[in-house]
């Protein structure tokens, strides 16, 4: 285990010990090496960005963290212990929630029901209790509804809570998806391009929400984003990937000055 001391960010927030650590992760699809020997850590309370040009392996990395892909080599350490081979739903139950690059909301349900699905991992009433809507099932519905309403309130989507998700515009859908992930009260929140396809105002809103989430709930956030301005402003530390390799890791300022990173983004004469 490396140090658990953490560090102090530029804006004076105390970052805690290591929450998740990727150790020498390699991911191969047949002969294609999507990720090659990458190691980095995510610390408690920080906003960690993963950036890189298209096809660098960022989304694959996120899929490994959320258990959707199994690394060919290497280990994922979570909360100080190596994580055994797990199904994605088991990873989710351990406190990892995520949003998707292409919105993956449940279109046939209302906003409220969608956000309630985020509470699934916290509900344990049996079949009979649910069928009778009595006892534990009813208590859970009400208790979890309270949590969900707080999230809805926090993300300012009260007015659409009973609207079917299919009727919402793109920007709101992204917000509902964030609400669903937040409702799970995750230890680690993964955001896959939370601002893709948004206009400036929507990006500002989303940035504010991400910072607020981190600030108020202390949620650790790992995000992938292409908008460099957003990444540099939001994140505490940045991992830069290119062609499946890690080419930079550090604070936004360090990464900005890194020659490999500049080369990857601007191209370099061969």
């Amino acid at each position: 285990m490396k140090d658990t001391q953490g560090y102090l960010t530029a804006d004076g927030r105390q970052i805690g010990g290591v929450l998740m650590e990727m150790r020498n992760i390699t991911l191969r699809f047949g002969g294609v090496v999507a990720i090659e020997d990458i190691s980095f850590d995510i610390r408690e309370g920080e906003i960690r960005a993963i950036i890189g040009p298209n096809g660098a392996g960022k989304s694959s990395m996120l899929n490994i963290i959320s258990g959707f892909y199994t690394p060919s080599n290497g280990e994922v350490w979570y909360k100080g212990a190596p994580r055994p081979l797990m199904k994605p739903y088991e990873v989710a139950r351990m406190g990892v929630a995520r949003t998707f690059q292409n919105i993956a909301l449940f279109e046939g349900m209302t906003v409220l029901d969608n956000v309630m699905t985020g509470r699934l991992t916290h509900m344990h009433a049996g079949l009979l209790s649910q069928a009778l809507w009595w006892g534990r099932a009813r208590d859970e519905e009400i208790a979890n509804r309270e949590v969900v309403e707080k999230v809805i309130d926090f993300l300012e989507i009260q007015n659409i809570r009973k609207t079917p998700v299919g009727r919402l515009p793109y920007g709101l859908k992204k917000r509902v998806e964030l609400a669903r992930a937040l409702a799970a009260e995750p230890s680690l929140l993964l955001l896959d391009e939370p601002m893709a396809g948004m206009n400036v105002e929507e990006k500002e809103d989303m940035s504010r929400f991400i910072l607020d989430v981190n600030d108020e709930f202390g949620t650790t956030i790992a995000l992938i984003e292409h908008d460099m301005g957003v990444v540099m402003d939001l994140s505490d530390r940045v991992v830069v990937m290119d062609y499946g390799k890690k080419i930079g890791d550090g604070t936004p300022d360090e990464v900005r000055g890194n020659q490999d990173v500049i080369d990857a983004y601007l191209g370099v004469a061969h």
């Binding site: 449940f106 349900m109 029901d113 985020g118 699934l120 009778l132």
Partner: peptide, 28 residues
């Protein structure tokens, strides 16, 4: 009661986007 409660949401999530359902913690 079953379809409006937690199990109903689990089913509908499985129906709508099964991959997302699994990634938010549903045992498909």
């Amino acid at each position: 009661n079953l379809t409006r409660g937690n199990l109903g949401r689990t089913w509908k999530a499985t129906r709508d986007v099964d991959i997302a359902a699994e990634l938010i913690g549903i045992n498909l």
